[in-house]
Design a protein around this nucleic acid. Structure first.
Lengths: 122, 122
DNA sequence: TTGTAATGCCTAAGTTTTTGATGTATTTTT
DNA sequence: AAAAATACATCAAAAACTTAGGCATTACAA
């Protein structure tokens, strides 16, 4: 789909996405073993039907930070003359994924009750 | 509960909360007609069992912004020598609440499927 | 009665996270 | 041959928040 058309279809205010990027990255890596940056952006777009678009300006700083924190490790390989940098979870990263997911689930539950989005079976 | 103890019990990383503040405010006002700032902080704390704590440093700028955007209107009354500023929804605000809630619900659904938190009935 | 906590409004500096623009280079498709 | 996709990255600016403070009144406990 051409870029200029995308803005008419999907995507909600990005505000809500804030704070969820790391969780998304960690979860994807937990499921797929290792992925490179560009692959992550495409996967998220596809899995969310273009509703969640991770820009590279947000992704790479986040990946670098996770690596600096010891949650991710990298492995660079060459595809012809092009470089590809694979990210994967460290042991510490693996144990963090679970916490992050629980935290998100808990947050959602709290918010849903606060916003009365989850009505008691009545 | 004393402040120094609170940090041991509840509250998850505030990151996730980002972007949800306006939605929370609008929904509370839709339900309660009119509320004042301090009241909102207390209500949210209570309804979320202290899991969501809205600081005044976040609340007041947000209220002022919503007012500037025409979604809220105010009414100041005096309680003895103390001032109390009630906020309520404008017609525009009322129609915005629904959108915000739908947006949040949609976001959550997308995230849950992305994070595989919602498994298909199997 | 005195001082601490609670009520009630507010601002402002600094941090974090993200957007949007830009840069570079290779490979694939039209 | 040109355009789009692949693939990495950085950086200024915006947005939203945290932390810390300021001011004043009222309630409560020591």
């Amino acid at each position: 789909m051409p870029k200029f058309l995308m803005y008419f279809c999907f995507m909600y205010s990005k505000e809500l996405l804030k704070g969820t990027l790391k969780t998304i990255i960690l979860k994807l890596l937990a499921e797929n073993g290792k992925m490179y940056g560009y692959e992550i952006t495409q996967k998220v777009k596809m899995l969310s039907s273009d509703k969640i678009v991770i820009t590279e300006g947000a992704l790479y700083p986040s990946l670098h930070k996770l690596e600096a924190e010891g949650l991710l490790q990298t492995e660079t390989i060459n595809i012809g003359k092009r470089v590809r940098k694979y990210y994967s979870l460290t042991p510490q990263g693996t144990s963090t994924v679970k916490n992050k997911l629980e935290e998100f689930a808990d947050f959602v539950e709290t918010m849903q009750s606060l916003l009365s989005l989850k009505t008691a079976t009545s």
